[in-house]
Deep mutational scan, measured.
Amino acid sequence: WVQCTKPECRKWRQLTKEIQLTPQIAKTYRCGMKPNTAIKPETSDHCSLPED
């Protein structure tokens, strides 16, 4: 599990088994990010989705 770092969101998201949760990902994670590439989402507001 990882928490969105966006102050107005802070929702918890479940990561897939393939993703290694590192301190860097935990510090920078935003809803919809692909942690294995550290690319921020380009599409709609993933923070608007219900918490996992």
Score class of each variant (00 low, 15 high):
G32M: 07
K17L: 02
T28P: 00
A26K: 15
K27C: 06
M33A: 05
T37E: 13
P7S: 05
E8D: 15
E8H: 11
C9R: 03
I39F: 15
P7T: 08
C4G: 04
K27N: 04
T28V: 08
M33E: 07
R30H: 13
D52V: 05
C9H: 10
E42K: 13
K17C: 14
T28E: 10
L49I: 08
T28I: 12
Q3D: 00
K34F: 15
T37N: 07
Y29P: 01
N36H: 04
T28A: 07
T43P: 13
Q14K: 07
P23A: 02
E42F: 10
T37Q: 09
R30K: 12
K17F: 00
S48K: 14
Q3R: 08
T16N: 12
V2K: 00
I25M: 14
P35S: 11
R10S: 07
Q20L: 07
Q20W: 10
C47T: 09
Q3W: 00
A38V: 12
C47Q: 09
Y29W: 06
S48T: 13
T43Y: 13
C31Y: 01
L21G: 03
H46A: 15
D45A: 11
K11T: 03
R13A: 06
I19H: 06
T37P: 09
K34C: 09
Y29N: 02
W12D: 01
D45N: 09
Q3G: 04
K34D: 15
R13N: 05
K6G: 01
D52W: 03
I19Y: 11
P35T: 08
Q24Y: 14
K11C: 07
Q14N: 04
S44M: 14
K17P: 14
T22K: 00
P35V: 13
E42T: 06
L21K: 03
V2C: 04
E18K: 00
T22Y: 02
H46R: 11
W1V: 04
Y29S: 01
K40N: 12
R10N: 01
A38Q: 13
T16D: 12
E18L: 04
T16A: 14
C47V: 14
E51R: 07
R30V: 15
P23V: 01
P35W: 12
W12Q: 02
P35E: 12
T22D: 12
P35C: 14
E42D: 14
I25T: 11
C9Q: 01
C31P: 05
G32F: 00
C47N: 14
E18M: 06
Q20N: 04
W12H: 12
K40D: 11
I19A: 04
I25C: 06
A26R: 14
E8R: 06
A26G: 04
W12K: 02
T16Y: 05
E18W: 08
C47P: 05
Q24D: 14
H46P: 10
D45Y: 05
P50C: 05
Y29K: 07
P7V: 05
S48W: 08
C4E: 03
R10C: 13
K40F: 10
P7M: 07
Q20H: 06
E8W: 01
L21R: 02
T28C: 09
S44P: 12
T37F: 08
Y29I: 08
L15T: 03
D45H: 07
T37W: 09
G32H: 08
G32Y: 01
W12G: 04
Q24E: 15
P23R: 01
I19T: 09
E8Y: 00
C47K: 10
T5I: 03
G32Q: 04
T37G: 13
T37L: 14
K6R: 11
T43A: 14
W12C: 03
R10M: 10
C31S: 01
Q14L: 10
T16G: 15
E8I: 00
L15S: 07
L15Y: 00
H46W: 14
E18H: 13
S48R: 12
T22W: 03
R30M: 12
S44A: 13
S44G: 13
P50Q: 10
V2I: 10
T5C: 07
K11V: 02
A38G: 14
Q20R: 05
R30E: 13
D45P: 06
I39R: 09
L21I: 03
A38P: 13
D52S: 09
L21P: 01
K27D: 07
K34A: 13
A26I: 14
R10E: 07
I19R: 06
L21N: 07
W12M: 06
K34E: 13
V2H: 15
E8F: 06
W12S: 01
K6A: 15
K17T: 08
K27L: 08
T22V: 02
K11G: 02
Q20S: 05
G32D: 04
I39N: 08
L49M: 15
C9V: 00
P35H: 07
Q14W: 04
H46G: 12
T37Y: 09
R13K: 13
K17A: 14
M33T: 09
K6C: 03
E51K: 12
P50R: 12
Q3N: 08
R30G: 04
E42A: 09
E18V: 01
W1L: 04
L49S: 11
W1H: 05
T28F: 08
R30C: 09
W1S: 13
W12Y: 01
S44R: 09
N36L: 09
E42N: 01
C47E: 13
Q14M: 08
C9W: 00
V2W: 02
Q3E: 01
E51C: 05
T28K: 05
R13G: 12
T43D: 12
K27A: 14
I39E: 10
C4D: 05
T22P: 01
E8K: 12
Q24S: 09
T5F: 00
S44L: 10
R30P: 03
R30I: 08
E18D: 11
S48C: 11
D52C: 11
W1G: 06
C9I: 00
T43S: 14
P50S: 12
M33K: 02
E8Q: 11
Q14C: 06
L15K: 03
I39D: 15
T28D: 11
C4L: 05
Q24K: 08
C31A: 00
D45L: 09
T5K: 03
W1A: 14
M33N: 06
K34G: 12
G32E: 06
M33D: 09
L49F: 10
T43G: 13
I25S: 04
E42R: 12
T16L: 00
M33P: 02
H46N: 15
P23I: 01
C4W: 00
R30L: 09
Y29D: 05
Q14F: 03
M33W: 13
T37C: 08
K17S: 15
M33V: 04
H46Y: 15
R30T: 15
T22H: 07
A38K: 14
K11I: 07
T43H: 05
R13I: 05
S48Y: 11
K6I: 11
E18A: 06
S48P: 10
K27E: 10
L49N: 08
T5L: 00
C4R: 00
T43K: 15
C31T: 02
Q14S: 04
T5A: 02
A38M: 15
T28W: 03
E51V: 11
L21T: 01
A38N: 10
K27Q: 11
T37M: 09
E51F: 04
